[in-house]
Write a protein that binds this DNA or RNA. Structure first.
Ligand SMILES: [Mn+2]
Ligand SMILES: [Mn+2]
Ligand SMILES: [Zn+2]
Ligand SMILES: [Zn+2]
Lengths: 151, 151
DNA sequence: TTGTGACTGAGAATCGCTCTCGCTAGCTTG
DNA sequence: CAAGCTAGCGAGAGCGATTCTCAGTCACAA
């Protein structure tokens, strides 16, 4: 329910840069390239997909930079049963949403549910967390199945 | 919303045995031991946890048997960002539920939400799936945060 | 220009998980 | 019961995504 911190791409880079600097880290070319790719894509990307889209990226650096960006709260890592993890911009840089996960090809697509339902969900989950002495950070709602391509 | 196929432990083993036989596979001692451990536990277990609880289990066989049991639809594998996957009985052998996932220690606990909410969720997700030409198999709702133990 | 500390990338290392293979065990048929 | 067939077993080798190492770079400030 919070407005995205960055709407324009320029803002996005500013936010990324600021969050990194706060941790004594630099917003280098490789890191900016990753953010650009993730912002341009309309779905979470795996490392191979990132390397394919920008051949100048080194694999080891990309792994390292994604970890750094995740630590700085700029990027979010999605671990599924697929062979590769996927990465997307952190939610406060985009908007709260959920994922359609294809268990055949591993592809992930975004979707949202009505905010009324989202609200009910949050209330119910808040109650559950309280009952268990659990400090909730965020919820995750995925729909698992077969995508249109894998028919 | 479907009643569990097996309520008693005996039934559980019968179901497991039947589902394996349907695939020309046998319900051996090691496989039965795994099912027993999962039925007794009130949370999904990782392979190390299984091996610790039953020292007679061999690691490689346990990995193989869990894969077989998953293929037969008796066991469900949960992949998280924790180092180990965790396993629980398939939902039609227990009941539909969701997970509290501790991002600190990796522990997983079950919870349920009111069936009214679950129904709304299913309706909304059905609509989403239709819009995307996605053949939904099941949904997954997790609450990620820090458990009481990790405070 | 120099010093400090972060970054880079090729390759080595890690480690959960899967595969291999010689042997055992369960079931079926005669 | 014996023989044949197939599934299962487990120790260890292998696999592969991810992480780590380390010798050079680069950014930035003094
Ligand atoms: Mn997404
Ligand atoms: Mn569970
Ligand atoms: Zn697909
Ligand atoms: Zn914990």
């Amino acid at each position: 329910m919070v407005a995205p911190v960055a709407n324009r791409t320029t803002d996005l880079h500013d936010v990324a840069s600021t969050r990194l600097r706060a941790r004594d880290q630099r917003y280098t070319r490789g890191r900016r390239a990753i953010i650009d790719l993730l912002a341009r894509a309309n779905a979470p990307l795996s490392i191979p997909q990132l390397l394919e889209r920008d051949r100048s990226l080194a694999q080891s650096s990309t792994y390292r930079n994604l970890a750094v960006l995740e630590g700085a709260g700029v990027v979010h890592r999605i671990v599924s049963s697929d062979e590769f993890s996927r990465y997307e911009l952190a939610e406060d840089l985009t908007e709260h949403h959920h994922h359609l996960i294809c268990s055949s090809c591993g592809d992930v697509r975004d979707f949202t549910v009505p905010s009324a339902l989202e609200g009910e969900l949050d209330r119910a989950l808040g109650r559950v967390a309280g009952d268990h002495g659990f400090a909730a950070d965020h919820h995750r709602l995925d729909l698992v199945g077969t995508c249109a391509t894998c028919a």
